[in-house]
Structure formats: structure tokens, C-alpha cells
Design a protein around this nucleic acid. Sequence first.
DNA 1: TACTTCGTTTAGAACGTTCTAAACGATTTG
DNA 2: CAAATCGTTTAGAACGTTCTAAACGAAGTA
Lengths: 178, 178
Amino acid sequence: MDNQLSSSRDILVQALGRQSAFWGLGKTAGEMYAVLYLGAEPLSLEEVAKRIKVTKGNISVAIRQLEQLGMVRRLHKIGDRRVYFEPETDFWKIAHSVLALRHKPEFQESFDLVEESIGLASRAEPTPERDTIMARLKELQDFYRLLDSMVETALSLGPGGMKKMTEAIKLLVPDHKL
Amino acid sequence: MDNQLSSSRDILVQALGRQSAFWGLGKTAGEMYAVLYLGAEPLSLEEVAKRIKVTKGNISVAIRQLEQLGMVRRLHKIGDRRVYFEPETDFWKIAHSVLALRHKPEFQESFDLVEESIGLASRAEPTPERDTIMARLKELQDFYRLLDSMVETALSLGPGGMKKMTEAIKLLVPDHKL
DNA sequence: TACTTCGTTTAGAACGTTCTAAACGATTTG
DNA sequence: CAAATCGTTTAGAACGTTCTAAACGAAGTA
């Protein structure tokens, strides 16, 4: 195998291994996905294990994470008892399910608590202190709602739409203060 | 103190304590911020420690995280040796510095590795395998870039702009397939 | 100067997470 | 049926993280 190609792969494994935490994955899962993402053809469980130097058991667990998030599909070749894995290469799809399955429920939980908090505060004695608390809680709620609709908007537009939109905005609002 | 008000506070502490991991904070830091966010007036270190039931030392450490992210400011009252803390209530500002100080460097690191990976692959033997790898890597790079410009756009527009924009899009593209 | 009262720092305990190694059941092959 | 191959499960080791408790330094007070 070409040496430069394989170190190119190794570096991507490093890159995605580091970032995996951000997407809510373990390091192993991130590295696995990287190996599959740059694999020209589907790889067997043992092959993946060998490439990133972990045990089979470890792969078996990490695969389930990736499957559940739609990041990896399971393949079977006829006359071959082994299982092969194939990456989902559409990041937009992946973002969609990661948000839906991981982030959304987590946010919803917090959002519900904030609502409960607002309910309680609204039933308290109407003092000035209560009013400031209520105001703060509502601001927080607004922020949650805005975040949510931003994400939904981005997902509904897809990569093409978002690309056009950000470019359009850069033209209209060139004085971004970053 | 009003019982409903204080349980309203407790619930928010719970809510932000859970979500803190998402923003790259420890549980304690999230809870601290919640206490300050709903405090009508600035609180002393000891007061905060008592409210969320951790030691002073713990608060001292967590405060620095929050200060560095611009989530909390430090106040001094004359003739009072104690330090008081006041929350930043502008979530947009907070998002700005969290992204700039935490997420951005992390992404940049990965992005640089992807570039390095592309460089290596481009110098490899021009086989079909290399070409598919190159194509994949470039797709990944595009995705990174799109994410980055989405974030920058959102930050430059601010909450008002984003609100208008998402509402406008909901009118123009009512058939979002979520 | 001795005594408090602060916030910070540090050593180590407690905890959850993530890995390995090995046993296991299921399936195929000789 | 015996042996080998494969993926899964499990017990426990190794690790990093996060907490407490206690020592500490700095700054005010009697």
C-alpha cells in the first residue's frame, strides 16, 4: 500500500478521533468512522479493529453507536459469515440524526425544566424579585427557542440552501464585527 | 424566602447543570451560573458555595472557567473584602466567546489535520483509490467550511437578525421535511 | 503581634468512562 | 461430531475527571 496514502488516512483518523467528543461519540467511534470514511470498500470488523488497534469487543460496541446515528451501515456478503461496514458519506444526513437523537432530547429535557421553573415562579408572590426572575427565565426560554428554530431552518434548507444563504448574507452584511 | 421562588431556582439549577456539558462546562460551573443568573443581586463566593452545596475551593476553580468565557464578572464592594459575582445575561455574547474560545480552536485543529491529510494524499500515486480518498477528504473539508461560515453568519446577524431570518424562511419554505 | 476572615492551591478520595482480556453462543467447516 | 471462525457479552483493569478536606498566603482587625 502507498505510504503517503496510508499516512493520509492515519492523520484523518487522528483528526476525527479528536473531534468525536463534540459529536457525542467516543474516541474509538470517531476513529472507526474515519477509517471507514476513507476506505475504498467496506471493511470487516476485524479489519477495522486491526487498523485502529483496539479489540474486537470494543468495535462491536462502538459500531452500535455509529449504526444508531446512521453513520455506518452493515453489509453482508454472500458466502461470507463476516459483517462488513460501510460509511454514510452524507454529512447532512448525519447531522440530522445526531441532532435528532442526541442533542434534541437533551435540550428538550432542559427546556421542559425551564418551563416548569417559569410555572413555579409565576405562582409565587408578585414581588419585584419574582419579576426579575420571571424576566430572566423568559429570556432564557426565548434563547432556547431561537436556537431550535435556527437548527430546524438549517436542516430544512440543506447544504445547498445554506451555502447560498451564507454567501448572500456576506454580500448584504459585509460589516460583520467578528 | 418564598418557597415557590426558591424551588423555581432549584429547578433551573438542575436544568443548566445538565446542559453544562454541551457548552463545555463542568456540572458545577453550570449550576453556579444558574444560581447567579437568577440572583437578583450579585452573590459572594461563599453564598454560591452554600446554594449548590460544594466547597469553596470548588467554586474558586469553576469561577475561572466562567470568567474566561465571559459568563460571569467579578465585583468588589468597598469596605468588604469578599468578592461578588454577577452573571452576563446576554446569551449571544456568551455564545460568541464560547465558540471563539472553545469550539473554534478545536475545530481549527481538526481542520488543519484534514488539510495535511489532503496534502499527503495529493502527493501519492494517482490511482483510482487515491482519487476516491481525495474526493472524500474534499467533501469533508467543504463541510467544515460550511459549518464555519454558518456560525460566523449567525454571530454577525445577532439574535434580532436571526429571528427575522428564520421567520422569513419559514414563510418561503413551508415544506420543511422534518 | 496574635487572631480572624477571605480566596486559592494542593493531595488525595470517589466516581464514571473506556479499554482489554477472556468466556461465551452461534455458525460454518473438516 | 470435533474444530475453527466470528460477533457479542462480561468482569475487571486503567484512566481521566471532579470532588472534598485541609493547608496555605494574603489582608484586615483587636
